[in-house]
């Protein structure tokens, strides 16, 4: 493999890894605070792309306004999802809330088929996103470069919120101990809503970037990325934000490495995530960066 092919694959891998990381964080944040796998997270991701699609095609908004609206509305949808499907069951057995998550996922997918139609739609791509960058002998689409940059900015902001702000501190406290957090005067419901909003906003950013890179929308497009990013979160150590980012990049780079190493193997790219999950869980059951802490009751 020549150097420029290698670089090309590397950039692609980083780009795909960024997308996975953005989606994986939502799983890990919600799990950290509710001990719940939000099965509808991939569908939230799908909704973001459709909101952006209709904002541009039906409402004729400029791309930046469409993206902004998609991020805000998706965050709101995440908050509504928690209110409607999870909050009423918060003190029920864990299995009930999990079933509710699966139900919410099916509901969103099927509603999407009814409302948006099952036929694929082409994501509208503004001219500035279809440029090709040529650096030396390497030519890459500008989207492939934008994705990691936007991801880095989003991660930087998230890291700041979680570690440096009062709300972030409260999030970490709530993830440790609900009652003790209440005794500090923290409003648990607000913090949980905030977590869903933030996780969904990141999924929306991921969804929009995904649409720019793979511009074909279908209502079930969230299932496979959702599943893979759940795996990425588990591989990194679910509940750990840095772990989710690490897991996302491992999956993205690994997938591209498989495709690059032999075209014959490219049919197995989706299987890679599952194999990796099994291997890592065999050696490190709590994930790469997970703590060996006992399950919260």
């Amino acid at each position: 493999m020549s150097l420029q092919t290698f670089l090309q694959h590397l950039v692609n891998g980083i780009s795909l890894g960024s997308l996975y990381a953005l989606l994986a964080i939502g799983y890990t944040m919600v799990y950290g605070i509710l001990r719940l796998i939000n099965f509808a997270h991939g569908d939230i991701f799908m909704l973001a792309t459709y909101i952006a699609f209709y904002s541009v095609t039906t409402f004729l908004l400029p791309w930046w306004a469409a993206f902004l609206i998609a991020i805000i509305l998706t965050a709101l949808l995440g908050i509504i999802l928690e209110r409607a499907a999870y909050r009423p069951l918060r003190s029920s057995p864990r299995i009930s809330i999990m079933i509710s998550a699966i139900g919410a996922s099916f509901l969103i997918e099927n509603l999407a088929i009814v409302i948006f139609g099952g036929r694929p739609k082409a994501f509208p791509i503004a001219p500035i996103f279809s440029k090709i960058l040529v650096v030396g002998d390497v030519s890459i689409s500008i989207v492939t470069v934008i994705i990691p940059i936007v991801t880095a900015i989003a991660l930087f902001i998230l890291n700041y919120i979680v570690n440096k702000t009062k709300t972030g501190m409260a999030m970490r406290a709530v993830s440790k101990d609900y009652d003790a957090a209440k005794l500090m005067g923290i409003n648990i419901n607000y913090i949980i809503s905030f977590t869903f909003g933030a996780g969904s906003a990141l999924a929306a950013i991921g969804g929009i970037l995904w649409g720019l890179k793979y511009p074909q929308l279908i209502p079930l497009m969230g299932i496979m990325p959702g599943l893979k990013c759940f795996i990425a979160a588990v591989i990194g150590g679910i509940g750990n934000i840095k772990g989710a980012v690490l897991g996302g990049f491992i999956l993205g780079l690994g997938e591209i490495a498989i495709v690059a190493s032999s075209p014959a193997l490219s049919g197995y790219r989706d299987a890679f995530a599952f194999v990796l999950l099994i291997v890592i869980l065999l050696f490190k059951p709590t994930g790469l960066m997970g703590k060996n802490s006992a399950e919260k009751v």
Binding site: M169, A170, R172, A173, K176, D177, A180, A181, L183, I186
Partner: peptide
Amino acid sequence: RIFSNLTVEENLFL
């Protein structure tokens, strides 16, 4: 019931 995953200072701050 201190927050073991936070620093001493963050606990006081909370």
